[in-house]
Each structure stands twice: as structure tokens, then as C-alpha cells.
Nucleic acid binder design. Structure first.
Lengths: 122, 122
DNA sequence: ATTTATGCAAATGCTTTGCATCCAG
DNA sequence: CTGGATGCAAAGCATTTGCATAAAT
């Protein structure tokens, strides 16, 4: 457990958003000037492998990461602002499992992203 | 409407699978040796812009394309074989719209992919 | 003719990797 | 001590782009 890994885990734990590797690198540099971007990428891959963090590949953007401590959830992306909103629906999850089962499959994992736009204020 | 564009549209219309740009290039070369990969990419982007085809970015793979003539559907990806299975669920679509609406959003488009494994045969 | 698409090669952007060094246990 | 992690620079891969040529209407 190196110092750079500790800093990265800390930054991800305290993050309220879903930063990408470059942004995370910037944040890590605050406490650890000189940390390499390669280390960020390498560490993120390692942490993902251990299930400590999740990687998301939203449309037309570089990979974004979040700490895995919160339970499972899916994402809505505001196409105008880029803001990411988390949400969760047991009903949808159940339906997904049913659909897969009907076709003879088990779900290993899934990905559901809603690209949304704020409703016009009436 | 150039010959290369016609070939590409034809190849996509007859495709039963979801080829990526390189595979499509290979298929196009059968009828049009010398067609450039850049042209394939450029044409695919143009066709996508016109809504003629759809682009999918599945996990850890290059973009894959399909003709848009079939109605809307989502995808299951067999993580062992890479096979892509199409499916559709109005109930899930409705739930998604409801969830977005509850949070004050309209859905622009969405992406739902189930990464699955064939059920063990009992 | 004149606009638009093509082919080629070079550039891009994100991510990964080889290798020598450094740090942690 | 010694293996694994780091920093740097270079490579990789999918995709895009600049530009001169060629083809389409």
C-alpha cells in the first residue's frame, strides 16, 4: 500500500462526483505533487480489479470512476450540463433478470444509462 | 451518394450481426477492393447522424454498428462468446421514463446492456 | 463545373506498457 | 532485502482529420 494509492483511494472516497483519470490526477497532485498519470491509471485499474471502485464509460467521454462503497445504482446523465445523477430501481433490476432468464441467461452485470434533459418548467 | 456509401449501407442492411468498423471494412472490400478505412469511419458517422444506423459502444470493444430499420431494442452480450442478443421490454422503458420524470427529466435516449452468461443446463 | 466524398498519411486522445529506479514491508 | 509500485517516455489502439485528387450531380 503506497502513499499514492492511499491518496487516490481517499480522493475517490471523498468525491461527490464521478471524476476521470485526469481530474483525479489533478486532485491527487494537491497532496502529492509529482504523482504520475500512469500511476493513476495503473492504480485505478488495480482498484477496479479488487472491486474497490467502479469504472464508467459514458458516451463520448473518457472513463469516469467512483468509489464502490455506496450500493449498486445506475446513472442518468444530463446531456446539457454533463451532470451525473444516481438512481436505483429494484423493479427494473427484477425485470432485467426475468428477461435474461426467459432467454436462458444469468446476468453477470449490467449497464443502464439514461441520457436526459431537464423538463421545461411549465 | 457514392458507390462506397452504397456498399456500406448494403452490407449493414444484410448483416445479421453487429460488426465493427474494421469488420465492415473487410466486408466492403469484397465488393470494392481498395475502399479506405477512413471512408468507412466517415461514412458510418454520417449515416449515424442521419439516423440510418446505430452505433453501440459495448464494454471493452470497439464501436459496433447496425442498420436502424428494425425498431428500438436493447442488447444482451454473452460474456463468454461475445454474441449479441437483441431484446425489448416496454415495461422497462416505461419504468425508465417514470423514474426520469420523477426527478424532473425527460429521456433523450438511453442505453441498456445486460452482460450475461448462459444458464448452466440442469 | 462545382460541390462533396475519397484515399492516404499524419495527428489525436485516452490508455497501456517497458524499463530502470524507488519504496514498502 | 526483495518484490511490487513508481515515474518517465514511448508505444498502442480506435478514431479523426488535413489535404490533394477523384468522382458525383
Amino acid at each position: 500500500m503506497t502513499r499514492q494509492r492511499a491518496v487516490l483511494v481517499a480522493k475517490l472516497a471523498e468525491a461527490e462526483d464521478h471524476p476521470d483519470a485526469v481530474e483525479l490526477h489533478r486532485r491527487a497532485e494537491e497532496e502529492m505533487p509529482g504523482i504520475s498519470l500512469s500511476t493513476v491509471y495503473r492504480t485505478l485499474s488495480a482498484l477496479e480489479g479488487q472491486g474497490v471502485i467502479h469504472r464508467h464509460q459514458f458516451e463520448g467521454a473518457s472513463a469516469r470512476f467512483e468509489h464502490a462503497d455506496a450500493g449498486h445504482h445506475d446513472h442518468m446523465i444530463d446531456v446539457d450540463t454533463g451532470e451525473v445523477i444516481e438512481f436505483c430501481s429494484d423493479r427494473i433490476e427484477r425485470l432485467q433478470a426475468e428477461l435474461a432468464a426467459e432467454l436462458g441467461y444469468d446476468i453477470v452485470h449490467h449497464r443502464m444509462e439514461l441520457y436526459v434533459r431537464r423538463k421545461p418548467t411549465s
